[in-house]
Design a protein around this nucleic acid. Structure first.
Lengths: 228, 228
DNA sequence: TTGTTAATGCAACGACCGTCGCTTTTGTCC
DNA sequence: GGACAAAAGCGACGGTCGTTGCATTAACAA
């Protein structure tokens, strides 16, 4: 394997480190993410992480007993700080902007490596973390949607969680599962179709799937339209 | 690690196998898929595959030089035979049935292991294969959609590829990325909203994103509806 | 039948991985 | 300042991985 001079090999002095271990931990976790991007989870070796971080591998193994836990710690440390997003109030424009930003971030090698690695972690160890990471995925679009519902731009009986999922799924799917680029036009089309669908769907849902909710007729579109 | 008596250890005679190598190859690839389901790609060991298949590991390494190639061969061998699906002609019912079948198959440990493993294969080796596997994902729903377009049930200017992706993505996303169950109700809601959206979208798209296509007005819905 | 080739099993080897005992250095409490 | 604990580096050991040379058996061709 070609090691392109990435072994910084800044030898550290032996013994307890001056000034605490915080900086050292940071370098280890950073090196872990680096290696994750380069090699993927399967090929990631703790030895290589130690070399890059300029640390003895024993130090790593003492703190994180398994590769899985090390990677989890690195992911948590780099935990996807929320996108700095200020909604403008225009539903469609906000959704497009947010999803486009998500798509561009998901194309980052680091984010992609994180997403792939999650699938390979030891499930028993990572289950809670992974569930939490995933749960936070919909919070921002759901907020936008709920705001639109409150302001009357969307009907009252819209399922915000479902709508957020239908909006995010195509972007995540294209970027993570298909590993293909996500052009802005695709984001715009997705938002357009799904929004149009959720606005029109109540008019047709009566004939399709009997909803558990008492199909409450709201003001804006109370006429029925039988399709097909 | 607990090896629950899965080492069949049916010792094979040394030397060239009687009756050709086909059966032997089949057992190796089958054992590879088994191990992939049990341990995942990262933890899969060729030694274990050899043990389960009752074969010396040298035999495996000679035929597939790397773990990545072995797993690729196993995936290709088990290549997702197409779902036995007979369209009834009813667009919504066909889409729900097809996507529900896909969802149920994706929940299979074997299919899930395959999907996860694909993300970890050596990209240089697997790129072509993966692209091909992915490309076939949309063929069936696209056929259904194009049939509906031809029969007039969907407007002429619907983008079948995009629609197929918007339909499949939420199901794949829920099953593969979120690792959560895909109830039939979710499939029904997805189909209902996306279909309603693609039917209504032309009426709103004029005000939203200037399409490159010369927004051809078809017969069924030529009225415009401005939405906020 | 006999020699050649193909395909396997077997055993051993080097390299790497994760662990452990030990040493060395730093921080802290008295 | 000195004793003690904390935290790191160092080296060695057993286990696994991928590779290689050799023995063994089956298929095939003359």
């Amino acid at each position: 394997m070609v090691r392109a001079g990435m072994a910084r090999a800044k030898r550290r002095r032996r013994g307890r480190p001056a000034g605490g271990s915080a900086a050292l931990i940071g370098e280890i976790l950073c090196a872990t993410l680096d290696q994750l991007c380069r090699a993927g989870y399967a090929e990631l070796s703790v030895d290589a992480v130690a070399r890059v971080a300029g640390v003895n591998k024993t130090t790593i193994y003492r703190r994180w007993p398994t590769k899985s836990e090390l990677v989890i710690a690195a992911i948590v440390a780099a935990k996807t700080r929320a996108l700095p997003f200020r909604p403008s109030g225009d539903l469609r424009r906000d959704l497009v902007a947010l999803l486009d930003a998500k798509a561009r971030r998901m194309a980052t090698p680091r984010q992609r490596a994180i997403a792939y690695a999650i699938n390979n972690l030891d499930p028993a160890v990572s289950e809670a973390l992974v569930a939490e990471l995933r749960r936070h995925r919909y919070t921002i679009p759901r907020d936008i949607i709920e705001h639109a519902i409150a302001s009357g731009e969307l009907p009252r009986d819209v399922d915000a969680e479902l709508l957020a999922e239908l909006l995010c799924a195509p972007i995540c799917h294209r970027a993570l599962v298909m590993c293909e680029p996500v052009p802005k036009k695709f984001v715009e089309q997705t938002v357009a179709i799904v929004l149009a669908g959720v606005r029109a769907q109540r008019r047709t849902s009566i004939t399709a799937a009997p909803s558990k909710r008492p199909a409450r007729r709201s003001s804006s579109a109370s006429f029925a339209r039988a399709s097909s």
